[in-house]
Design a protein around this nucleic acid. Structure first.
Lengths: 350, 350
DNA sequence: TTGGCAATCTGTAACGTTTCAGTATATTGA
DNA sequence: TCAATATACTGAAACGTTACAGATTGCCAA
């Protein structure tokens, strides 16, 4: 089955994939010249360059990734690092699609590097860095003091975080303005006369937990509403847990008349818990919820909804990483999307 | 910044990533011997083998992927080919997680190869085959006569399909038994006294469209119920379209009193359309729906639900591809998950 | 004693690419 | 005219790995 005894490349019939050697033979040039002609090196004659590129296009030459990678260390790979048991569903596919959109016209491939509950989140990052498996990395579930970001900064590998850090270190990120979300949500509830508000928070420990909580608190004092503590669960908890805790909360004497929820799936559980307690959405209580896929309004029309675009996040993150790889200043590759309108902070390369 | 003038590898201080040459120097053996010792070749002495493997473990040697790939052509990559605009959300992440689980203990990386509406679905497959970018491929949205499967079979690259084909060609697949699903769904509705049933179908053209439609028809005649045609939309249509069409259908004189729905998101739209027409779920009409994430029962407790486990699908698909790569017979790498057996058929009301 | 053979180990070449250090030819300045 | 220089090209080496074709040693049978 292995009939590669075809007297070297130059006499091979036709079927093998063309290499620089093939091109060199066809054009009568040396491989060095061909290699340079293809990347528009200055010391190659204009006509030669055109000729080589024409032939390359004609026979469908594509550089061998392994060859390039071995020689130069460039992998042409972006790695998306995902928590396999915690990341919310639709989340992931949207981010992947967003990233894909951006790298579609580049030589980059997207590899998904998973890690599970049982592992140190730093493990997959170490692996990528130590084995040089990617030119750039995208991480999510970012923390204020994020060991992964610090590690990658120390090791000089370009990356972007979904969510900001707070370590005094500068790196590319994309984030949704959860402070603004919480503020708007509280204002909206207040404008409907709701005065006792509860917050279903993001996972404790992630940076946007703080943003959300602060926005919530800021807006509470602004509108003069009060908080009903609801810190026994976060959107990371199971549907059942959220539902149960919500029902318990709603059966108390002092219960919220308004909720702010940081995730769509959690909102489903929230509503279920409320109704378990015999209360009615839109009457006894209102909810402002974030969502990423456009389905929540079908669930209960009374829900007040703010959209977060994860596909955009994926695109921005990919653009940032590619920008950093391309030599742009990391500080110029940060963006924030604001609920309602998407406001991208400047790009460096203009 | 490039100080690799360190007199070859053997005298390098410590920091560069270890290679076979490093190991050879440390053990006093030749690189060939080291290479063979690491892969348990028979012509290496037992003690030498142990010694080499010990040292390799100690210094954390990991084979350079580019080196292996260049020399052998083995990429250690599995590619998951996804339609960027059509694949349902949770779908994708679950499959990715399932695949990840399986390849976690292998040297394989998972790369996601997207293609969009505008492209020929064969494009990404051609790319993968022509550039030799993967050792194995996983595709979804499988059709009865699937050009991609045929192409990969012709080109001898191992793959697995999510869903079966019907071309008389044998290849690995994993599929959910949608015929059985439709049959059970109809029986269930019939047992509740429903007699005029409609089917919200999978995308026309995909293999499981046929399976579902056939199961539906078979069961209809079995239980003596009649079909109300509802072929203007499929689960590939937008939420709005499904909702509108459903409302139209439900306002007719002759309208269904039972639905079978092939996807959770579509079911949301279905229910919305039904309620738009002023009818009540569980009273005027019942619905049996598939779901992959466990959320539908929160939406309406009256919904009758069948779970499809996409994480399992991902695992099975990965196992199949790895099996084929490993030399197993493609015909032995086919699996079907049956609703009710592998998966729980849950009653919402108990 | 010698030839044969099994058991271990080794050097070289090759995969496709880029970089380094050239070479050959034409062009320029004096 | 000669040397200096710019222009256009080239071979060899190297990245890390594996496969091929030996090489060395010790042991045994004849």
């Amino acid at each position: 089955m292995d009939r590669r005894h075809t007297e070297k490349n130059e006499e091979a019939s036709a079927q093998e994939r063309p290499t620089l050697k093939t091109l060199a033979f066809m054009t009568g040039l040396g491989v060095t010249t061909v290699s340079r002609a293809l990347k528009d090196a200055p010391e190659i004659g204009a006509e030669t360059r055109r000729r080589v590129q024409l032939v390359a296009k004609q026979i469908g030459y594509r550089p061998n990734r392994a060859g390039v990678r071995l020689r130069t260390g460039k992998t042409n790979v972006i790695s998306l690092v995902l928590n396999t048991d915690r990341e919310i569903m639709s989340f992931v596919s949207d981010i992947i699609y967003g990233v894909s959109e951006v790298i579609a016209d580049t030589p980059y491939h997207l590899i998904v590097t998973p890690y599970s509950r049982s592992q140190d989140p730093l493990d997959p990052i170490r692996y990528l860095v130590e084995t040089g498996s990617a030119d750039g990395v995208i991480i999510s579930r970012t923390q204020p003091n994020d060991a992964r970001a610090r590690y990658m900064l120390e090791h000089g590998i370009p990356f972007a975080t979904h969510g900001r850090t707070d370590m005094g270190l500068v790196h590319p990120y994309h984030d949704f303005d959860n402070h603004a979300f919480a503020v708007e949500a509280v204002r909206r509830l207040a404008s409907m006369g709701r005065r006792k508000l509860a917050l279903l928070t993001p996972p404790v420990g992630l940076t946007y937990y703080g943003h959300t909580v602060n926005g919530f608190a800021d807006a509470l004092s602004e509108v003069g509403a009060s908080e009903i503590p609801f810190s026994t669960v976060s959107i990371d908890h199971s549907i059942e847990q959220i539902r149960t805790r919500t029902a318990q909360l709603m059966r108390r004497d002092i219960r919220p008349d308004g909720f702010v929820s940081s995730a769509a799936a959690a909102t489903l559980a929230l509503v279920a818990g409320i109704e378990d307690a015999g209360l009615k959405l839109g009457h006894d209580v209102d909810i402002v919820s974030k969502q990423s896929s456009d389905l929540l309004h079908l669930f209960r029309p009374e829900l007040l909804i703010v959209n977060e675009n994860f596909r955009l996040a994926g695109s921005e993150l990919a653009r940032s990483v590619l920008g950093w790889i391309g030599g742009a200043a990391p500080g110029s590759l940060q963006s924030l999307s604001v609920p309602g309108e998407v406001l991208a902070y400047q790009r460096a390369d203009d």
